[in-house]
Write a protein that binds this DNA or RNA. Structure first.
Length: 214
DNA sequence: GGTACGATTGTCT
DNA sequence: GACAATCGTACCT
């Protein structure tokens, strides 16, 4: 994409500065690219979950702002990366107006460029069976893109960043977006069903399997 | 200062 | 299908 990219910079950030529930479906089909010394990986987003900050019991921001989740309270277009269980990283894209702590969790995607690089990273981190598994699941996605806590707060909208978001040019195909309860959100099935804020591309092989919260 | 818990994954049965 | 791994953060005493 050239410098004349029609959807970038302030315009994209403005598009992201809406409630997570509105932004989440529009991210399906978008491309997320990371530039690293070991290579460039581009990912097509196929599965996301919306988190509505202080209103959402499943959100890290539900109990207010802390040092860890401070990025979520900031402007849209930044990454919120956290470590889960001391083992894995999960990647969120901050959205909504500043102060709302809305964010969209990137759950899964399809590696469309730099597959060999992503494969090498996954091998280094553990097992990888097929290309479909490269980014099927939040932690796997983080590994494939080489994202960790050092990327917490990274701006994916501004130019020059190592991580860049490119929205889908024509949006997700009509009728291809499915929605349902979020995966693994504490509060049990009741809460999960009260917030059916998971969106994915119907029929896409890279979408992670649904697992109910324990 | 100490304890409980978690937006997951991989492996074993 | 069920469980262990592993550590930073939040909350309580």
């Amino acid at each position: 994409m050239a410098a004349s990219d029609p959807v970038s910079g302030p315009r994209l950030r403005r598009a992201l500065a809406r409630p997570a529930l509105e932004v989440a479906p529009t991210l399906l089909g978008a491309h997320l690219t990371t530039r690293r010394p070991d290579g460039v990986v581009r990912l097509r987003v196929t599965e996301v979950e919306a988190y509505e900050g202080a209103l959402d019991p499943g959100s890290h921001a539900f109990r207010g702002q802390t040092a860890r989740n401070a990025v979520m309270f900031g402007p849209a277009g930044h990454l919120y990366v956290y470590r889960h269980l001391g083992l894995h990283h999960c990647v969120n894209l901050v959205c909504g107006p500043p102060g709302t702590a809305s964010a969209v969790l990137l759950r899964a995607g399809e590696v469309v460029d730099g597959e060999e690089v992503a494969l090498a990273r996954r091998r280094a981190a553990g097992v990888c069976r097929t290309p479909v598994d490269l980014a099927r699941g939040p932690a796997r996605l983080a590994v494939a893109l080489a994202l960790d806590r050092s990327d917490d707060g990274a701006d994916v909208v501004g130019g020059g960043a190592a991580v860049r978001l490119e929205p889908a040019t024509s949006g997700p195909p009509a009728g291809a977006v499915a929605s349902g309860p979020r995966v693994g959100v504490s509060g049990a099935g009741g809460a999960a069903e009260a917030f059916p804020w998971r969106f994915w591309l119907a029929g896409d092989a890279t979408v992670s399997a649904y697992r109910r919260a324990p």
